[in-house]
Lab assay of single mutants.
Amino acid sequence: KPRTPFTTAQLLALERKFRQKQYLSIAERAEFSSSLSLTETQVKIWFQNRRAKAKR
């Protein structure tokens, strides 16, 4: 499955949200993903990867 190329605007929004909160609830994820027109899975995986990156 090819990787999702996120737009610059989407990445900025994701990073901004991540700075506020490293873990999203299911409801927050649903709302946030639709506002960015991404799937919930894409947002979930992005947050997982971003948390892993923050640990390094």
Rank of each mutant, 00 (worst) to 15 (best):
R51D: 01
R56V: 14
T8N: 12
T41I: 15
A9D: 13
E40W: 08
S34V: 10
Q22K: 09
T4H: 13
T39P: 08
T41E: 13
S25Y: 00
Y23A: 11
A13N: 06
A54T: 07
K17I: 15
R3A: 10
K21T: 12
P2N: 15
S25E: 09
T7F: 02
A13Q: 15
K17A: 14
P5V: 12
R29C: 14
T41Y: 07
Q10C: 02
I45R: 06
W46C: 03
S35F: 06
T7H: 03
S25L: 00
V43A: 00
R16F: 10
Q22S: 14
A54W: 11
R50A: 13
R3M: 13
T39R: 00
R51P: 03
Q22I: 03
E15L: 06
Y23P: 02
A30I: 11
R19L: 15
S37V: 02
A30Q: 09
A30C: 14
F6K: 11
A13R: 08
R56F: 14
L11C: 15
Q48E: 15
A52K: 05
A13E: 12
L14N: 00
A52R: 06
P5A: 08
R50E: 15
S37M: 05
Q48F: 05
R19W: 06
S25M: 00
Y23C: 09
R3E: 15
K44Y: 08
L11W: 00
E15K: 06
T41G: 09
S34E: 10
K17Q: 12
K44A: 12
R50C: 05
S33V: 03
S37H: 13
S33T: 03
Q48I: 05
A27P: 08
N49M: 08
W46S: 01
T39G: 07
K53D: 12
F6A: 01
Q42S: 11
S34I: 14
F18E: 00
T7M: 02
R3G: 15
K44H: 10
Q22G: 07
F47G: 01
R29G: 10
Q42P: 00
L24G: 01
S37I: 03
E28Q: 03
V43T: 02
E40R: 01
R19N: 13
A13L: 07
R29W: 09
W46P: 03
Q20I: 04
I45H: 08
L12N: 14
S37E: 11
R19Q: 13
L24N: 02
R29N: 15
T7I: 08
R50F: 00
T7D: 07
T39L: 04
I45N: 12
A27N: 15
N49A: 09
T39D: 13
F47I: 06
S34D: 02
E28H: 00
T7W: 02
Y23H: 14
A54H: 11
F47Q: 03
Q20C: 07
S35W: 06
S35T: 08
R3C: 10
